[in-house]
Design a protein around this nucleic acid. Structure first.
Lengths: 202, 202
DNA sequence: GGGACCATTGTGGATATCCGCAACCGGCCG
DNA sequence: CGGCCGGTTGCGGATATCCACAATGGTCCC
């Protein structure tokens, strides 16, 4: 659902700030959910429905940075906006370099924060569709047999069927059959298209 | 020259810091040049020989950030390490998001700064070789005539010669000739290789 | 005007690719 | 054991691609 991925998640152990942020976004018509701690969010199993994470750095238990690191390690790539009470340049630099979407100091400007969150949501939507496309390609590749992959590699290397044949110690006909199957499974109609599709990844 | 691209450039209007930084890198055996201002560096015309720029944020005249912006606008992509005396989180976040390699507060740890500079140099070398490869491709594309480009686009779209022919209102033979010229000029031997090469860019 | 470059086309043959039809073999599984 | 899957091969024909040899017409520039 587009809606479920458009949700803004807020994690802050300060009730006042959490409520204020929730109100801020809701008042502007944006779906938002709040959590009192990183653990609460993770335990809920709702992380997959998050499109933008607004995260307090300093929290009891798992800190914002720790949650960020955990998400990265578990391939949950989603834009994170850090909130921090005390300006710490090295921490901010590190967070951004590690891929955080933004790093905002309190007190923050309401409009700016909302803008950043919306930009993050937009980026996330892009990432999701891009990932879906890559995922689709990988699934197709996964359908290929080992032999077909060997043939495909050589096709992509520009080798002619007869070269591939002698290379693999089989006849040209066999290569042709594999080739046809590869095209079929990969949903393309020529080696050129295949190259285009596979060039998308990597 | 590898050497000329491996130079570390330091820009700081504080003589003491400039000298200290120069000494720091030279004592460790790294080529380094120092400049008292952004203007001095730009006027020298030596910017092309820089492999890593260590830049003071606050300077009279053109600030470090301004120089950074100028370089970006003029496609002089090279790693920049900012030095700043007073922690300013928004500025640091912005600099990193805009592509700065690092943002370091004074006083800094000598070893860390050297490590970062060396990492920047390494990254720059990578970028240079990558850019050179892309540049070579673009030069080859530039050799193609308008007509050849039209044909190439269709070849990359997986169209057969006869389709391209009727598409462009010419005979197959003509398409074949263009095709051969394209392969020759692009230095490839098949449409697949062509797709691979052109997929490298974009 | 002559030369360089580009686009175009033709002929004809050598290669390469694409496919339907048919078949054999070995491994795995119910 | 029979079926399914994957790898293999053969045959033959339809297409497609690659190329050498040869040639025409237009544009631009010295």
């Amino acid at each position: 659902m587009s809606a479920s991925e458009s949700q803004i998640f807020i994690v802050d152990d300060d009730d006042a700030i959490r409520d204020a942020l929730g109100w801020l976004f809701r008042s502007r018509g944006h779906a938002v959910r709040t959590w009192p701690s990183a653990e609460a969010l993770l335990d809920s199993g709702e992380i997959a429905h998050c499109g933008c994470l607004v995260l307090d750095i300093r929290m009891d238990g798992m800190s914002g940075l720790e949650l960020f690191g955990w998400l990265r390690e578990h391939s949950h790539t989603l834009p994170v906006i850090f909130l921090t009470g005390h300006g710490d340049v090295p921490m901010a630099v590190d967070a951004i370099k590690q891929g955080a979407f933004d790093f905002v100091e309190k007190p923050f400007n309401d409009n700016e924060l909302v803008d950043r969150a919306l930009a993050a949501l937009a980026m996330h939507r892009q990432q999701v569709s891009k990932r879906a496309a890559l995922q689709a390609i990988e699934e197709r590749v996964a359908q290929l047999t080992q032999r077909e992959i060997e043939v495909m590699e050589r096709v992509l290397a520009g080798q002619m069927n007869k070269v591939i044949a002698s290379d693999l110690g089989v006849t040209m006909r066999t290569v042709e059959v594999h080739r046809a199957r590869i095209f079929e499974k990969m949903g393309v109609r020529s080696a050129v298209e295949l190259a285009q599709v596979l060039a998308t990844r990597k």
